Amino acid sequence: MQQYLQALADGDAAKALSFGSSQPASTDLLTNEVLAKQNARMPVTNIRVLDEDTTGESIGISRVHVAVNFGPSVDDSQLSLKKNGDGWKLDNAAIKLSAPLGSDSIKAMQSLTVFGKKLDSGPLYVFPGFVQVGSSNDYLDVTAEPLGLKDLGAYGAYLDAKVKLNDDGRQAVSDQLTDAFANCERSRALDPPGCPTKVSPYDAADAIDGTVTWGKADLSGVKIGDLSPYDMTVYLTGKATMSLSFQTTDGGTKQGTVNAYIGGSADMTTNPPRLKIS
């Protein structure tokens, strides 16, 4: 047990794997390079074998109580060892890591990556400690708790990931909203194509279409909400305000403002986000 943990601390993936009685189906993430990334964030230190239960030694089974630091966190666990022709081994020297429970119905979870590898096509195998998580969607930030020695069990572990809209995603929604109102500003029409607002029917009654001058939209009153991970939607609510002027049928000019009450959403599965504004 001590040699296994020391192999992790030394960044020696092949040696660490040699202490498993069964070998993982994939070693893509069980490399010295990935171990170096894990140790850079949460180094393996202060390895202590605290106790050993040898009552099953006659039938080739033992339990070891061990404590070790992964970065600042102490992992205090009991693990089973079994004896075979090569000596005492762990059941598994790597963790079988599966996608979060329910991820089939949660769109945000279907883009998760672990050390750059997609997790939606089946389990990945990693060593205990720091797990570098991310998303193939540029608009998402992902965080996850590190994996512990208890996760070396036969059933492995499910990634406990939390996903949120990042600053780039929020800016992308804001940019698309600004572009939508720019369709108004470029137009001279009462009801500009692609614009989230228009001159009201009451004011348009004496207006001459094609003579409207739209001012720049004030979007400070529109709130961009948080991400819904289930459908990858961000909701928009609030008020946008635009100044405008137009000629009237009696030869005069009207000036005023238009308040556009925004209720809509942004689909974050596309790049750029696709807005739906009502």
Results as ranks from 00 to 15, higher is better:
V133E: 08
G225E: 11
D175Y: 06
G225Y: 13
D203H: 12
Q255D: 01
R188V: 02
L177C: 04
G256E: 06
V212N: 00
P196I: 13
D191K: 15
Y230I: 14
T248W: 13
A172R: 08
A189S: 13
P229M: 13
P193D: 15
K239A: 08
V173D: 05
Q171L: 12
Q176E: 15
Y202Q: 13
Y155E: 04
D151H: 12
A144C: 06
V199D: 10
D168C: 01
G156D: 02
V142G: 02
Y235C: 03
A172Q: 07
K162D: 12
S265L: 03
D209M: 03
K164R: 13
D250P: 03
E145Y: 05
C195K: 05
V133Y: 06
I224M: 13
Q171S: 14
D209N: 15
G225T: 07
L190F: 04
L227N: 13
T237P: 05
L147S: 04
G238A: 08
A144L: 06
F246Q: 08
Q247S: 13
V131T: 02
V142I: 09
D218Y: 15
N259R: 05
G256Y: 01
C184Y: 03
P229S: 07
G264Q: 04
V126G: 02
Y125I: 01
A204I: 00
D151I: 00
A205Y: 09
V133F: 08
A172Y: 11
L190H: 05
V126P: 04
A207K: 09
L227S: 04
P146M: 11
V258P: 00
K198T: 09
V199P: 12
Q255G: 12
Q176G: 08
G215K: 11
T249A: 14
V131R: 09
G215V: 05
A217Y: 09
P128G: 06
I224F: 05
L159Q: 12
